[in-house]
Amino acid sequence: MLVINLLTDLAPSLAIAMREPTGTTSARLLEEGPHSSLSSALTHEVLHHGAATATGASPAWVAARLTGTARRAGTVSVAAVVGTHLVQTLTTGGTDHNVLVAGLGSAAVLAAII
């Protein structure tokens, strides 16, 4: 679990959080206040990302378990969870240089671990 958090939350999430907002200005976001981004919008994003991760990782684990050992299925499922998170991060971050570097760096670390 720590590896998943390290690869998906440390650099990639920080890169997303630190990038300039797109489609709006910082002043407009300050005027809106926290309720517009921390209420139903946040709940929707969390549910969307959770569903996308489950959709990517569950079939990967089932396929790996049917064709190999439980240990192999565990490795495949960790790679699938991290992979789906990184794809979502890269999709959210667009062409932001820091997001691309963080996402690709995390993917390289995952590949080295596996």
Rank of each mutant, 00 (worst) to 15 (best):
M1P: 12
M1L: 11
V3L: 09
V3E: 13
I4P: 05
I4M: 05
I4Y: 13
I4C: 15
D9W: 02
L10K: 05
L10H: 03
P12I: 08
P12Y: 06
S13L: 15
S13W: 10
L14Q: 06
A15I: 00
I16C: 08
M18N: 06
R19K: 14
E20P: 01
E20A: 15
P21G: 10
T22M: 14
T24E: 10
S26K: 12
S26V: 15
A27S: 13
R28V: 03
R28D: 02
L29Q: 14
L30H: 10
E31H: 09
E31P: 02
H35V: 02
S37F: 04
S39R: 07
A41G: 07
L42Q: 13
T43V: 11
T43I: 08
V46D: 11
L47W: 11
H48M: 06
H49P: 02
G50Y: 09
G50N: 09
G50L: 05
A54E: 03
T55R: 10
T55A: 08
T55D: 14
G56R: 01
G56M: 00
S58H: 04
P59K: 15
A60R: 13
A60L: 06
W61L: 15
W61S: 00
V62G: 11
R65A: 14
T67A: 15
G68F: 04
A73H: 07
A73S: 11
G74K: 05
G74W: 10
G74P: 03
G74R: 03
V76N: 06
V76P: 01
S77L: 09
V78Q: 08
A80S: 13
V81E: 09
V81F: 09
G83A: 12
T84I: 09
L86Y: 05
L86S: 12
L86R: 11
Q88A: 10
T89K: 04
T91R: 13
G94E: 12
G94A: 09
H97F: 00
N98H: 15
L100Y: 00
A102N: 13
G105T: 06
S106F: 00
L110H: 03
